[in-house]
Each structure stands twice: as C-alpha cells, then as structure tokens.
Amino acid sequence: MTMLDETPLLSVTGLSRYYGERVGCRDISFEVYPGEVLAIVGESGSGKTTLLNCISTRLEPSAGCVSYRMRDGESRDLYRMSEAERRLLMRTDWGFVHQNPADGLRMTVSAGANVGERLMAVGERHYGRIRDTATHWLSRVEIAADRIDDQPRAFSGGMRQRLQIARNLVTGPRLVFMDEPTGGLDVSVQARLLDLLRGLVNDLGLAAIVVTHDLAVARLLSHRMIVMKDGRVVEEGLTDRVLDDPQAPYTQLLVSSILQV
C-alpha cells in the first residue's frame, strides 16, 4: 500500500492580486502534489490566468504566499527568493507552456536549438550531446528527426505546440504550467496533443497546473480541478466529481453549457 506523499510540491496560501481597484484573483489557497495534474477552469476574465501568472513568478501577487519544495526538499517562498534563483527554477525545474507557441519559442532559431537552449543555459557545452538530446525529445513529441534544423516558423500550429512542450521538458522539470495548451488548435490536432501530454505527464510523473476554459481538456488531463469565477474559487475537487456532480451554481451552469457531440 503506497502512502500518500504528504508534502506538497507547490503550496498557495491566501493569494490575491489586484489591478488597482479591480480584483484579478482573491484569497486563493490550494496545493499541488508531485505527479498531480490540477486544472484551473473558468471563463475569460475569471482570474485563472492572473492566478497562473502569480504562482509561476511571472506576476507578483498583492498578498499571500506561494511556496515550492525545491529538489533538496526544502520549501521556499517564491517571492522571497532572489530573481536569479527564481529564473534558474523557471528554466530547470519548471516548464511553462504558452497558449501561443510563439510566446514560448524562439521563432528564428532552429527546432534543435529551441530544445537545446535550456541545456546550454545550465552549462552543457558539448554540441553532439545537445543534438542527441534534442533529437530524442523531438521524437518524443512526434516531430520527425529531419525537421531538427528547421525553424518553428515553418511548422504548423500543432507542431509548434509540441516543440514548445519538448523545449520545456528537456531539463526534466517537476512542475509544468500550461496556459490553454490546446487553445487555437484544430480539434483533431487538439486530440493528438492532449494524448501526447497525457502520456508525457504519466511517463515522467510530472506535476502540472493547466489553465483551460475547455472542460473536456480538464477531464482528459487533470486529476483535480478548481473552478473560478470573478477571481474566486467557487468549487474544487476530483475532476470527474466536479464535472459529473457539480455543486456550485456556476459550475452547474458551466457543465450544462457544454455542447454535446
């Protein structure tokens, strides 16, 4: 019988972010454990992207605390770390998958260099090894090896998104943030990407926080979910429980609004 790992990887307490008078998100608390996928759902303007940015050190919260358990086991308050430490964390132990791949890729350097950049950033100085690792990761995200020297400008939307994922995973992160990872893709491409993400998350034991407005994405990828409205959490729980037996009025509305195919 495996025991539950009781130390969270990421722990958010009383987090708020205001934009002047307006509320981005207010008094949010939750935890993410190793290997767990958490979906944050809600409509546009519900504060989910603000929340994602606050917990990934991209936007300083107005109040509250975000702590992360480092590889040495020590939990650190992200906003008390030096910027150098935070940035190191972001390019080694974390990944961030943007909705628009152009925001997460260098569009004018080759696919291989996009994947290899993080390795070079942590001091890898052997071209052959960098290239081998890049080739391996391209194949894991189903990009043919002969595209390694092509720039992502020449890639389709789905390929770009897969490349962005490879670029993030190459340093073996423990936590990946994803902002609408399948947004803007054709349905068939979405399905392929979701399947790929699911496989990678399972195989690598990644923890992930996925922001999405698409409940189908949340159902396929996440173990747990948080439903947000007007900057607050209105419901949280096991993903299939929230979707099959929604409790909060807003969640019921959201679930009942899904188009059936």
């Binding site: 539950l4 454990y33 096991l238």
Partner: peptide, 19 residues
C-alpha cells in the same frame, strides 16, 4: 477497506479517492 484500514470514501480528500 483500503489496505489495512477502513477509510470513509465520502469524506476522503480527492487525492485519497484517487489512491
């Protein structure tokens, strides 16, 4: 009966339910 213990599934945390 989950392992050696009787666990209340109705009150369990999502993570425990998954386990």
């Amino acid at each position: 009966r989950h392992g050696d213990a009787m666990v209340d599934l109705a009150a369990a945390s999502p993570r425990l339910v998954l386990a």
